[in-house]
């Protein structure tokens, strides 16, 4: 639990990466030349979190809950509608130069290991690309790429000159990790980066990630639908549902004493190794409502087993302390109060 105390020990210090009120909606139809009411998908609404140096925040939730969109918004691969992102206190996105610097400091590893490598470039060229963009001389970039290949467990003599299709999925994902590290970032975002790997390879890569975090003093944003993996690698966890953060806190706190009904349902769907813990009952009923047509009030209310009248009419604010927050009327009766600060 040392990581957690480290996480809370710097209440006054500037967090490495700070995300404030990040929101994005996508226009779906209407409102244009043809008239009609404009329809939007609220992909991400009002996401806040801090990421301290050397720590990992896990983002969990079911498909379509806005995890990947959050990652792309942070990288500015999609432009956010609103929200402030700052790194070490410097705001990002105000001008192209700050964005370029930010994109060296924050890197991303994608889920599809083969689609995220250019098939016409050798492994070495792919890893070198980012570094040369930021002005690193070719020779040094090559040296660094060989060092990193070694570091992620691939022999440069065997792999540097190969093409992506000659590698296995696990090897390719190691290359992607090396590619992300080649620009010497401070934060790395993993968007389902280990989800496509088989279990034994996944475990190796996770251990590698932990080692690399220590060695390069990195912070991670780890997006996954696999709750076990997130528990293993994260210090803090953020649970998302339909684009909103429903619960946030130190990973062991959230896993041991979940407060939001959605988090509870999600955690009870985890497979257990203990046969006595197993149950046939589905922990959560139905599908999430269409993000086009969100229910009034709490967006989890149609599926919630503890639903009360207020849940159907008023959307709960996320409330709590700096390190532990939840958005639920049942947990905090003040959550519905419009004056309530987040």
């Amino acid at each position: 639990m040392n990581d957690m105390t480290a996480n809370t020990a710097t209440p006054g210090g500037t967090p490495k990466l700070s995300v404030r009120e990040l929101s994005k909606r996508f226009h779906v139809s209407g409102g244009g030349l043809m008239g009609g009411e404009a329809r939007y998908v609220h992909a991400v609404s009002d996401v806040n979190f801090n990421l301290d140096k050397g720590t990992t925040i896990g983002i969990v939730g079911e498909s379509g809950c806005g995890k990947s969109t959050t990652a792309r918004l942070i990288m500015h691969l999609i432009n956010p509608d609103s929200g402030k992102i700052s790194l070490d206190g410097d705001p990002v996105g105000a001008d192209p130069a700050s964005l370029k610097k930010f994109r060296r400091d924050v890197q991303m590893v994608f889920q599809d290991s083969s689609a995220s490598l250019n098939p016409r470039l050798t492994i070495e060229q792919s890893i070198m690309f980012g570094a040369t963009i930021h002005g690193t001389p070719k020779a040094e970039a090559r040296k660094r790429s060989h060092y990193l290949l070694n570091r992620v467990g691939l022999d440069p003599a065997r792999f540097a000159g190969r093409y992506p299709h000659e590698l296995s999925g696990g090897q390719r994902q190691r290359v992607n990790i090396a590619r992300a590290l080649a620009v010497q970032p401070k934060v790395v975002i993993f968007d389902e980066a280990v989800s496509a790997l088989d279990k034994s390879v996944e475990a190796q890569v996770l251990n590698l990630l932990n080692e690399l975090r220590e060695e390069f003093e990195l912070s991670y944003i780890f997006i996954s639908h696999d709750l076990h993996v997130v528990r293993y690698i994260s210090d803090t966890v953020m649970v998302m549902y339909l684009g909103q953060v429903v619960e946030y806190g130190p990973v062991e706190d959230v896993y041991n004493t979940p407060q939001h009904p959605y988090t509870k349902a999600l955690l009870s769907s985890m497979l257990s190794v203990d046969p006595d813990d197993r149950t046939d009952a589905a922990p959560i009923q139905g599908d999430p409502p269409s993000p086009l047509d969100l229910p009034s009030g709490c967006c989890f209310s149609p599926r919630c087993s503890h639903v009360a009248d207020i849940c159907r009419s008023l959307s709960p604010r996320i409330t709590g302390t700096r390190t532990r927050q939840v958005a639920c009327h049942l947990v905090d009766p003040a959550a519905g109060h419009p004056e309530c600060a987040t």
């Binding site: 990288m75 060296r104 991303m108 994608f110 599809d112 995220s116 792919s126 690309f129 963009i133 620009v183």
Partner: peptide
């Protein structure tokens, strides 16, 4: 994804198109 990854590493549009 590799185009997105190249954008994420801060490369300009012309460089991405070329490489």
């Amino acid at each position: 994804d590799y185009v997105e990854a190249a954008q994420a590493s801060g490369a300009g549009s012309l460089t991405i198109i070329r490489v």
